[in-house]
Design a protein around this nucleic acid. Structure first.
Lengths: 211, 211
DNA sequence: TAGATTGTTAATCGATTAACAATC
DNA sequence: TAGATTGTTAATCGATTAACAATC
């Protein structure tokens, strides 16, 4: 890692590299050049080499990159070489879908608890997890340390929920409410705004038109 | 609209402007300057004016922008001044959550049907919609024209599903499978990759650390 | 060694920001 | 008119791409 503030553009290409290398590895491919990666992913070969070199020199001149090694380096860089515990706040549709999503545990992300303020939802079972009142969260986190707080509340509750999670020591917020949530320096945030995504699709539909 | 190939960066700021102006309007604010917008959103004032001017001059020197007018212009640009019909392919967790999500109909996006290849799921009711076999889609679209196809299948089925939708005349794909889907020129695509988003959050957690 | 391909420097391109003339 | 603020041109900054020397 030589890291020198890596740009957002690079960060968002990392998962794509990781997926591609996983595919390559599962196919039994042992080595790959930036030229081949370029052909397969559509990204520029210079850019690919430059991206990797943000974190260190993983290749070898005249040879290219070892698929397994490179994949593993990127896995490390992304921090997905370990397990994470998460809690969900909000037992609505989005919260439930995330709890049931099979891919997350497969990738080392485990949702350990679900919390809601709605009394009617308390006790409800979602994928083997009983919905708990938000007031039970503090004690819960003492027994089950969690790194990630997933905000799946309505818009109006999103910011206060995030603030509450941070106050309890959570250092990463994954926000699904249709509004941006602000956090202090040092706290990680990732906003997934489905409405925004749909707006962008709508924009494209009204612009992409052609043969 | 003077449009001259609007950059992705601008496109992705449009929903943010729209949300902000909606908020301002609901508060009864009638006019706003780029300086005020800059203060509230954190974006640079020059950038804001430049972004709007990709589409036309919506402001007035010495006055600023009329909130209602500007909001409406952006609504038009985004194409969310009308209604859209959509179908969901894949009645799993993600598909179900999207069908139940109350915000979409509120914003003019209506999910009219849900289809799956899994015989066990056919007939199941989701929010008043019966899951249908994929074979019934062609006929369904004749009765109920849909503009958007939502891919909520497993990874392996994503590309073929998208291709099938396009073959039936769907011109916009909203893809939730954890893999990128490629479409021809002229077809709109928006990929929402939850795993990628989680990877980025994980990366941040391992980098943001500080006070 | 000759060939291949990286890592890195230099050139290009595009996006952001600053500055200011136009104008309400 | 004087003041405010846009729309737009010019300057800056950063990201992408090309080129090539280093080296396996």
């Amino acid at each position: 890692m030589k890291d020198d503030r890596v740009s957002e553009a690079v960060i968002h290409r990392l998962p794509k590299y990781y997926r591609y290398l996983t595919e390559l590895d599962s196919l039994g491919t042992e080595r790959v050049s930036s030229a081949k990666m370029s052909k397969d992913t559509g990204l520029n070969a210079s850019q690919i080499r430059r991206d990797f070199n943000c974190f260190g020199g993983f290749g070898q001149q005249g040879y290219g990159y070892q698929v397994k090694r490179l994949r593993n380096e990127i896995k490390n860089i992304l921090g997905i070489n370990r397990q994470y515990n998460a809690i969900v706040i909000g037992a609505g549709n989005i919260g439930q879908a995330l709890i049931k999503y099979e891919n997350f545990p497969r990738e080392g992300f485990f949702i350990r608890g679900v919390f809601d303020v709605d009394k009617k939802k308390i006790g409800e079972q979602i994928n083997g997890l009983a919905v708990q009142p938000l007031g039970a969260l503090k004690k819960f986190l003492r027994r089950t340390p969690c790194q990630i707080g997933i905000v799946a509340t309505p818009k109006r509750a999103a910011q206060e929920t995030a603030d509450f999670l941070v106050s309890l020591g959570i250092r990463a917020i994954w926000n699904f409410a249709p509004t941006e949530v602000a956090v202090d320096e040092g706290i990680s945030i990732e906003n997934v705004n489905l409405s925004d995504s749909l707006y962008v699709l709508s924009y494209r539909m009204n612009t992409d038109k052609m043969g």
